[in-house]
Amino acid sequence: MKHYEVEILDAKTREKLCFLDKVEPHATIAEIKNLFTKTHPQWYPARQSLRLDPKGKSLKDEDVLQKLPVGTTATLYFRDLGAQISWVTVFLTEYAGPLFIYLLFYFRVPFIYGHKYDFTSSRHTVVHLACICHSFHYIKRLLETLFVHRFSHGTMPLRNIFKNCTYYWGFAAWMAYYINHPLYTPPTYGAQQVKLALAIFVICQLGNFSIHMALRDLRPAGSKTRKIPYPTKNPFTWLFLLVSCPNYTYEVGSWIGFAIMTQCLPVALFSLVGFTQMTIWAKGKHRSYLKEFRDYPPLRMPIIPFLL
């Protein structure tokens, strides 16, 4: 059985960083990364991007050496992705923050609204209902991160945790300040508006959870398998008939419901920014589905049925 020789060059300087002799033909890129780490321990596998061309796409960890368009002496180019952190850690951090930050404003801890309001309670029912909904949303997200989601990528750049936390924590503080303010004004149409908004919120939260469970069942634990998601017997998953990412559709719907319930401008802005970002993600995933699966359902749109 022939063996391969693998040289790894710096993608920027073309400097030879490592030479691997007698590499098995069936070795994966993940195994080559581990061998590279032995000579350069500062670059652990998650930091490494190996590619066939200095400006090309990163090879997948599961790619097999003998199936790549290389000879028995293969040249790979290395790029440092920077310090990495696990997706689970990032999600837990960015979701735990809003949960606790919101509660600080809800309980009106000292130095927020003035001494005479310390630890007082709002007289408006919608304020307490909003706290329950907000807390439920982020507790749900935390539990899904721990027990439901299966991540195709193990890590992301460390800098992302600061960007994500600034976004989630900042908006949580902004909306919580106004919703729990002693001078907060309840919704214009009173109980009817709150009940309608609560119904929207609850339905969308159930829908979002149902989609996450359906997506989880598509991917076996520990794998990166991708399949076309289809509706199940659960009615909340029937939205798969019309959109590629109904989890985002339901998520946006939840925040629209919360915005109607609280009639709070920061919540509306958070919903708008979230919708914009999720639309970008949904379009990317939709394109990926179309590219990977020739039999992908043609009627589906990325996030909004028939429109977007």
Rank of each mutant, 00 (worst) to 15 (best):
C133W: 07
A74G: 14
I8L: 04
A214G: 14
P98T: 03
T75I: 09
I228S: 10
I203M: 08
V70L: 10
A176V: 02
P41L: 10
T225S: 11
T39N: 11
S58D: 13
C264S: 10
E31D: 07
I29Q: 07
I303C: 10
R14N: 07
F91G: 03
N208I: 00
Q48L: 07
F105D: 14
S58E: 04
K2F: 11
Y189F: 12
H3S: 08
T93A: 11
E144K: 01
A96D: 10
K227Y: 15
E94S: 04
G190W: 15
R150Q: 13
Y184N: 12
Q193Y: 04
R79S: 03
I132H: 01
L17M: 02
R108Q: 11
A191D: 06
W174E: 02
A27S: 11
L103I: 06
M301R: 11
L269P: 05
Y230Q: 01
S288T: 08
Q205W: 10
S58V: 07
K291R: 11
T93P: 13
T166H: 15
F147P: 15
P302R: 06
A282P: 03
F270P: 02
L9R: 06
A221G: 06
P187Y: 15
G253L: 12
G154N: 06
W43N: 04
Q66R: 12
M213K: 13
I228L: 10
I8Q: 01
P182T: 03
A214R: 00
K55W: 08
T120F: 03
A191N: 11
I132Q: 14
E7G: 09
P231S: 11
K16V: 04
Y4F: 01
I280K: 14
Q277K: 03
L265T: 00
V273F: 07
V6R: 08
R123K: 08
T72N: 08
L104M: 11
P110G: 15
I203F: 05
Y189R: 14
T75A: 11
G170M: 04
Y167F: 08
K195G: 15
W255N: 15
F78H: 04
I85R: 00
A30C: 05
F36N: 13
D295G: 11
P302H: 06
L290E: 01
Q277R: 06
D10L: 00
A46H: 00
A199V: 12
S121P: 11
C18I: 05
W43Q: 11
P231D: 01
I32K: 09
S210Y: 02
Y177T: 04
H134M: 02
V252L: 08
G222A: 13
S49R: 00
K55S: 04
R300N: 02
P235R: 07
C165S: 09
K291N: 11
N164G: 00
R300Q: 02
Y113D: 00
Y230N: 12
H26N: 01
I101G: 07
M278R: 05
E5L: 10
S254W: 06
G170P: 05
A130I: 00
A27V: 10
R216P: 04
K2C: 07
I85M: 02
N164E: 09
K33G: 02
R141H: 02
G82R: 12
P305F: 06
F91I: 13
L196H: 07
S223T: 00
R219G: 06
D21Q: 02
H149E: 01
E15Q: 07
L50A: 03
S135K: 02
L242P: 06
H115R: 10
Y184H: 09
E31T: 03
W87T: 03
V90G: 10
H115W: 10
Q205H: 07
F162T: 06
G170H: 01
T249K: 15
P186H: 04
Y189Q: 11
P157F: 15
S121T: 06
R150G: 04
S244P: 03
V127E: 07
Q42P: 09
E31I: 13
V148M: 07
T225E: 11
L104D: 13
H153R: 05
C204T: 07
Y77R: 01
A176F: 06
T89A: 11
V6S: 06
N208G: 10
W174F: 12
K291A: 00
L99F: 11
P54E: 15
F107D: 15
T72I: 08
K140M: 07
W169Y: 03
H153W: 02
V148K: 15
Y230C: 11
W43V: 03
F111C: 02
N34S: 11
M175K: 10
N208Y: 04
L52R: 12
A221I: 15
G56H: 15
T13R: 15
L68R: 10
V64Y: 15
H137N: 13
Y102H: 08
P246S: 05
H212D: 03
A83V: 12
T262W: 02
L307M: 09
K140T: 02
T262A: 10
F258C: 11
Y138L: 00
L239F: 08
W43I: 05
A214N: 15
G154A: 05
I85L: 13
E251W: 14
V127G: 03
Q42S: 05
I132V: 12
I8A: 00
I85S: 07
S271T: 09
L20R: 10
I260G: 05
N234P: 00
D118L: 00
F105H: 15
H286K: 04
I139L: 01
A221E: 05
M213V: 10
H128F: 11
F105P: 05
K38E: 04
S49G: 02
G82A: 12
L99S: 07
L20W: 12
S122W: 08
T237A: 06
V70A: 11
P266Q: 04
I260M: 06
S135A: 12
Y250W: 15
G71L: 10
F306L: 09
T237P: 07
Y178W: 04
P302V: 08
F293P: 02
D21K: 13
E15G: 09
Y4T: 06
K224I: 01
W87M: 02
W255S: 04
K60E: 09
Y113S: 06
L129R: 03
P186V: 13
P98E: 01
V127Q: 00
M213P: 15
E94F: 00
Y296E: 02
K233I: 14
V23M: 06
D61N: 13
A46F: 03
R47L: 09
L307R: 08
F91A: 03
I161V: 11
E24V: 04
N234C: 15
P187W: 03
T89V: 10
E7D: 07
L218Q: 03
L272P: 03
E15R: 04
F36V: 05
H40E: 03
Q193R: 10
F91C: 00
